[in-house]
Amino acid sequence: MITAMTFVIALYIFMLAAFTGYEVISRVPSILHTPLMSGSNFVHGIVVVGALGALFNASSVLEQVIGFLGVMLGAGNVVGGYVVTDRMLAMFKPSTKPAAPAQGMPVTGARS
């Protein structure tokens, strides 16, 4: 199944994806660092798909238990990541005046 070609294609995918991630994040204003950390936290929640695949193919009780745990944790990553990012970004809701820093920074909400 895994031939030399698929292995090399996997390396190509990893290389291009790494450049993509770098390009997406570079030159981002520091005000967005925390929401982006949360947003990328949501994106890697796609691991739930891998956990689902493992659980569907489980053939012993041990595999079912570990697969169940994996899907549960992955689902928590997806839903929690979405909700938290959504709440952080809600503070960026478009306003006509140029961003007022005191309202625009989710993390420093404790200050006000």
Partner: peptide, 13 residues
């Protein structure tokens, strides 16, 4: 899909 999303987050993170 996991490889792409995971590695994008890996480098962006």
């Amino acid at each position: 899909a996991l490889m792409i999303a995971g590695m994008v987050v890996g480098s962006a993170g």
